[in-house]
Amino acid sequence: MPDAVSTRKHQEHFFAALDDTPLAAVDTVDEEAAPASLWADAWRSLRRRPLFWISAALILLVVTVAAFPSLFTSVEPRFCELRNSLGEPSAGHPFGFDRQGCDIYARTVYGARASVAVGVLTTLAVVLIGAVVGAIAGFYGGWFDSVLSRITDIFFAIPLVLAAIVVMQMFRDNKTITTVVLVLGVFGWPQIARITRGAVMSVKNADFITAAKALGASRVMTLIRHVMPNAAAPIIVTATVSLGIFIVAEATLSFLGIGLPPQITSWGADIAKAQVSLRSQPSILFYPAGALALTVLSFIMMGDAVRDALDPKARKR
């Protein structure tokens, strides 16, 4: 073995293998442990990761800004005067002004709420629906699989624009963040469902699942306690990436003219508006897009950390 990396890995694995020699023993341990122990284990492992702490700090910052924007700026984001149009940064206005003459810093601060809410709520909704549908379809197979998968196919095919216009029109006089969440949710869950189904199918025939069944675990318990944690990795990866994509999708909806109403300040809408200034004033785009990128980055890093911590195999290292 000339490759140094692989030699070291090889040694690690050797030690790890000593830890849990008989397969059956692993399952017995899991069988007795309360679900809390899975999370307790995860927490113990998370605490040791710098990635986790960095992302946690960033998320805390973003969430605080989203919850209490007035702590960070005293400027009203919707007070815009054209005479300030495209104004340079000045005292009290660190980022300058956009085309309408609104303070970019204030808009970036106030835009956090809508964007974070859209991202987090949509991801939650999508994971909830998608994971349940996908898990049932993948684990039980047969009729369940056929019916659920075909429903997934249908929903997958609904064009986002069509769904958006219809839903937006249903709530035309009180469009809120929920409306956008609903639109993106209808559009987004089938993907998680497909991913979950694939992951569950690949895990359900694994030896330790067979063992759990053989040891008398009920099907539902097997699914929840053994299959899902082992299928969690792709779901979490997809979900954290999706979170970013949903925030960006809100911008795309605004770009197509069917996003949040102008009364709600959001990064997405500001990015869409800045597109017009792309040739002449690209800096207007920079701040909302930068804030969005930082938020997406922190959630993805958090997702990676949690995934590693949750995964019993990865945690061993």
Binding site: C80, E81, L82
Partner: peptide, 22 residues
């Protein structure tokens, strides 16, 4: 947005655009 801002800032009343998707 610019017109409603102009009205809002001059007259001191609430003014805003009402978007229709199509």
């Amino acid at each position: 947005d610019a017109v409603t801002n102009s009205i809002k800032n001059t007259l001191g009343i609430q003014a805003e655009g009402k978007p229709y998707p199509t």
